[in-house]
């Protein structure tokens, strides 16, 4: 007891509760979200329409789901830039074997298995050979998309009618992909916030060496995360295939920027150890609100590129500042 009080005296005085609650990156995301909704309604009279916004979110729901898992990967101190290419390759493989006569359920398994295998390759190179994940996944990003291009050329492969239309399935007036995204957020939020596994992810990201000394099996945890990444990318790829009714090698092209952006905007700390699923959840909505608002107002897509780039930079600066001021 005496020891504890001694440390407490040395440390800075505890911050008032309102600061703990309010000065955090998720709050920034929430404020930006409200600003975005307001700005969208000012830009175009056609913007404020729940059905339309839900429909627009469906178009990004696949990326958003991947971004949720990516958040865990970044918290654990790694990064994965290959998921968009993974989506394309698993979807192309699925459509290709399916078109070659493999029964649909089996073809789905092939797609998911391919996604897992790609995650495993990333994990093996990063953890087994200890090559930084940044550069490994730039390499696999090019490789996976290139393989998809070899398989599908540049023609689009149709998927069977029975598989098409996930975005038309409505549950209580909400498109199924949006529901899936919310469910995944809930599950991952609980996993990260309430389980030992979640606690270990933070530990690995904060100080990998210390975590290992404390008995955390860092390699195993990071491998599991890369496998989860592969699997969710494949699911996202198949969802996209179902939404579009056809698959081409350029599916999800450039999606890695949006995924990283969602995680960053949600206040995930790029150097690992900090971040929440709630933040990424809010950020996904923010991103959809911003892009949809600009598209419906017929703003040049060039401005979207600028705004997305600026948002990414501003959000990491803000996140870094908030963390450095509040949690030393």
């Amino acid at each position: 007891m005496t020891e504890t009080s001694a440390t407490a005296r040395d440390a800075a005085p505890p911050r008032p509760l309102w600061q703990v609650l309010l000065i955090r990156p998720e709050m920034m995301t929430l404020i930006l979200l409200l600003v975005g909704i307001f700005a969208g309604s000012q830009l175009s009279e056609f913007f404020l329409d729940t059905d339309y916004i839900l429909k627009s979110f469906t178009l990004s729901a696949e990326f958003a789901m991947v971004a949720l898992v990516l958040t865990l990967v970044i918290i654990a101190g790694e990064i994965d830039l290959s998921p968009a290419a993974n989506m394309a390759l698993s979807a192309c493989l699925f459509a290709w074997v399916q078109a070659a006569g493999v029964p649909l359920p089996l073809a789905v398994l092939v797609g998911l298995g391919a996604g897992l295998a790609m995650g495993a390759l990333n994990g093996a190179l990063v953890i087994g050979l200890q090559i930084p994940s940044i550069i490994v996944t730039i390499g696999t990003l090019i490789l996976y998309r290139g393989l998809a291009q070899i398989i599908a050329g540049d023609k689009s492969i149709r998927v069977p009618e029975s598989f098409v239309g996930i975005n038309d399935v409505m549950v209580a007036g909400i498109p199924l992909p949006v529901i899936l995204f919310c469910l995944l957020a809930l599950v991952l939020g609980l996993l990260l916030g309430t389980t030992i596994f979640g606690r270990q992810i933070y530990l690995v990201g904060t100080n990998e060496v210390a975590a290992r000394h404390a008995g955390v099996r860092s390699a195993r945890i990071r491998m599991i995360l890369f496998l989860m990444m592969g699997l969710v990318s494949a699911v996202a790829g198949l969802m996209t295939a179902s939404r579009l009714g056809s698959v081409r090698y350029d599916l999800g092209l450039g999606g890695e920027l949006q995924m990283v952006l969602m995680a960053m905007l949600g206040g995930t700390y790029i150097f690992g150890g900090r971040g929440t699923i709630l933040g990424t959840f809010l950020a996904a909505w923010l991103l959809v609100i911003v892009t949809t608002g600009m598209i419906v107002a017929n703003v040049l897509p060039a401005w979207q590129l600028c705004v997305l780039g600026l948002l990414l930079i501003v959000s990491i600066i803000a996140t870094n500042l908030i963390y450095s001021r509040t949690q030393r």
Binding site: L257, L300, P301, A302, W303, Q304, L305, C306, V307, L308, G309, L310, L312, I313
Partner: peptide, 11 residues
């Protein structure tokens, strides 16, 4: 971020 920003400025 600047990859996206500079490309947008080009447009």
């Amino acid at each position: 971020g600047t990859l996206s920003l500079y490309r947008g400025m080009t447009f």
